[in-house]
Amino acid sequence: MKILARLSEADGVAGDEQQVRKLIREFAEPHSDDMRVDALGNLMVTRSGDPDLPAVMIAAHMDEVGLMISHIQKNGLLKFYKVGGIDDRVLPSSVVRIGEDKVAGVIGAKPVHAQKPSEWKKVIPYDKMFIDIGAQSEDEAQKKVKPGDYAAFATEFGEMGDGRLKGKAFDDRAGCAMLLEILSADHSVPLQAVFTVQEEIGLRGSQVAAWDLKPDLALVFEGTTCADIPESEEHGYSTTMGEGPAISIMDRTSVAHRGIVSQLVKLAEENDVPFQFRRSTAGGNDAGPIHLTREGIPTATVSTPCRYIHSPVSVLKESDFENGVRLIELFLQSIERGFRP
């Protein structure tokens, strides 16, 4: 989990994935035959393998949701845009890191003392919030940050509870970490590992990567919605922490390839790997554009359930992650033994 720790603490808001890419490059180097970056910034790591076997694209996105500085006010406070889907309610009292120099800032809100109780019930819209970096004037702020700088949540990675991990951006650094684990194992299946960009702002990186690589089939790894929490009913959980990796059925952007899904289920059952279906059709992921590329590509998604995604801190269970990796490895082995979707 050292890899996940470092990935989680790297910053890579959609459109600014450089830091994460650099880190992943370092991890993937020993396991790659070829590595390149495309026009959008996708990192494509190829492992050649047996040319008679189908080429499998495995993809996870590097980017995370975050903020972008839009304007520096006269008083030195910063206005910002959201990048990706963030619930405004998680923003107040967040700590962020801005730009290449990781300038620290806090998202301020009026103190309770200065509010009427009736205000507490209202959601503060993000464009009424600001980031305070401690600068006391526009001039002072301009020395540290500029409009267009990205800001990421500042959250330390750590352990908690019974085998759980907490950190930011598990959506989709958990997927990136799964992908790296798989790259580090031995397989004869030709692998096209793609660490994609700009998933959170419209599934953009995967679209061009799949076009370029023309894989025979594709698997997407996600850190996905998990709502097994109070005030949520069982049929609204989507996934349950600790019940194993989640196999997608359908979401807003794709219907998972049923041949791949049933093979995953079969392998999980035969090998006693716990798994669950992702019991929600909300949201979308890179499988959407990938499966519609060119003539169409058989594609499925396997995810690690993560609570509180798209916020400053998310939680996952290590065993779900490990079982996800195991399931994918079994799947790749089954391709070596002749499985075709």
Partner: peptide, 20 residues
């Protein structure tokens, strides 16, 4: 500063073929 979707032709151009 254009945080994400530019709403211009560039938004489509960027993701054409292998990316531009």
């Amino acid at each position: 500063v254009i945080a994400h979707r530019s709403g211009t032709d560039a938004w489509a151009m960027q993701v054409t073929r292998s990316g531009v």
